[in-house]
Design a binder for these strands. Structure first.
Length: 395
DNA sequence: TCTGGGGTCCTAGGACCC
DNA sequence: TCTGGGGTCCTAGGACCC
């Protein structure tokens, strides 16, 4: 499968995924837990079962809300994965060690591994705390002098170098996929976890990618997967057999057309090294559902605190926003949102609180509430004069 | 055994303006 | 009094991702 446009140079895009990131950071701190099933999740220390060695809590007898954010490979072998409720996980793996999340530590190691990679290859796109894309085009071109016969072999050698510098900087392992684009690299990095490097050359798409489940495509989630399954489409290869018009009929103009291209491994998105944030939010799920009338005082206090925390985030990061949003999840998990656009962008807690309070008046309060959230969008940087395109100003 | 918290992007309808 | 089409903003919800 050669590039459709011969004028476009070949691309070498890497996707780097840290292995069981949060859990691996915890194992640096508690090396005695290596080899044992460990999960990270839940909230601040609450009373649950102590382990036999009396040092670490186990999942046994865990009650309360919360999900697993990361599990070690030993825990995954017991059927315990990220996103799973902790109470369910406790049934499957009662003796697994449960550690509370320490985001400050994870952010620190995130910075360490990203800085180490950037020192080698500066074209890095952030995809969250434990993932990046890297455009290796320059680095591959620069190593031509090495005299390596095949550019993909050079790319693979670069991936091994990146794994080494990440390990030296953090003590952690990662998996890397290298292909001509982000879509395929994201798939590739998962093929040899943990600690692997996988290369998919353009000609390998049929043999390597098509046998995989459609769910492996980043962008096909649980809903689209279920619908595809009902339509008799299980693998990416089967998806590639469907014609574009049919997919558009089933999934809409934009999504259907995207699926058609994704199944063929086509993706021209560039590696984007920086982008402005679109919104900043804070939300919290209560330990027990709160009643809008009986628990009004507590709800009000939490509501105000969320506004203060969002305002603090805005101020720290240097943004103001003019769309103030409220999010409520009821005890039946139904979620509603309301928002209100104000005239002047703000980063002030009281202003946010007032606007969010207006939003609150527009939501039904006839059920218990499970989650409350506050969001500020349509961000700008205060003090930065925005360019105007109003032609009347120049006539 | 119900499902965290922080995000992005897309769709769709209505208001409003030209 | 009625009828257009296009563009942009606002709002609500939902899919998806890490």
């Amino acid at each position: 499968m050669e590039s459709a446009n011969p004028a476009r140079p070949a691309r070498y895009i890497a996707h780097l995924d840290m292995d069981a990131f949060y859990a691996s950071v915890e194992l640096l701190r508690y090396p005695q837990l290596r080899g044992r099933p460990v999960v990270v999740g839940g909230r601040r220390r609450v009373a649950y079962g102590e382990s036999a060695d009396d040092r670490f809590a186990t999942l046994r007898g865990y009650t309360g809300r919360g999900v697993i954010t990361t599990s070690t490979y030993e825990a995954r072998a017991l059927g315990v994965f990220s996103g799973m409720g902790l109470m369910k996980a406790a049934k499957l793996a009662p003796d697994a060690i449960l550690l509370p999340a320490d985001f400050e530590a994870y952010r620190k190691y995130s910075r360490l591994f990203k800085d180490a990679v950037r020192a080698m290859a500066p074209e890095v796109e952030d995809r969250g705390i434990d993932e990046i894309y890297i455009d290796l085009g320059e680095a591959v071109a620069a190593s031509v002098a090495d005299g390596a016969p095949d550019s993909w072999a050079r790319a693979r050698a670069l991936a091994l170098d990146i794994q080494r510098v990440v390990r030296e900087a953090t003590g952690l392992s990662c998996s890397i996929g290298i292909t001509p684009n982000k879509l395929l690299s994201k798939i590739a990095s998962e093929l040899n976890k943990p600690g692997g490097v996988s290369v998919i050359r353009p000609d390998d798409v049929h043999s390597v990618v098509w046998p995989l489940a459609v769910r492996k495509i980043n962008g096909i989630g649980p809903r689209a997967n279920a619908k595809l399954e009902k339509l008799g489409v299980r693998t990416i290869g089967e998806l590639a057999q469907k014609d574009a018009a049919w997919l558009v009929e089933q999934f809409g103009r934009s999504y259907g057309a995207w699926m058609y291209r994704a199944a063929r491994g086509e993706d021209e998105r560039p590696v984007v090294t920086w982008s402005e944030p679109k919104s900043i939010s804070r939300e919290t799920t209560f330990e027990d559902d709160l009643h809008p009338v009986r628990d009004k005082a507590r709800l009000t206090a939490i509501f105000t605190e969320l506004c203060q925390r969002v305002a603090g985030d805005l101020q720290r990061k240097g943004y103001s926003g003019k769309t103030i949003g409220l999010k409520i999840r009821y005890d039946n998990f139904q979620t509603v949102t309301r928002d209100l656009t104000i005239d002047i962008p703000t980063q002030d807690a009281k202003t946010i609180r007032r606007a969010a309070g207006e939003c609150l008046k527009r939501v039904p309060l006839d059920r218990r509430i499970r989650l409350l959230g506050v969001r500020v969008g349509t961000l700008s940087r205060p003090g930065v004069v925005l360019e105007t395109h109003d032609p009347s100003l120049f006539e």
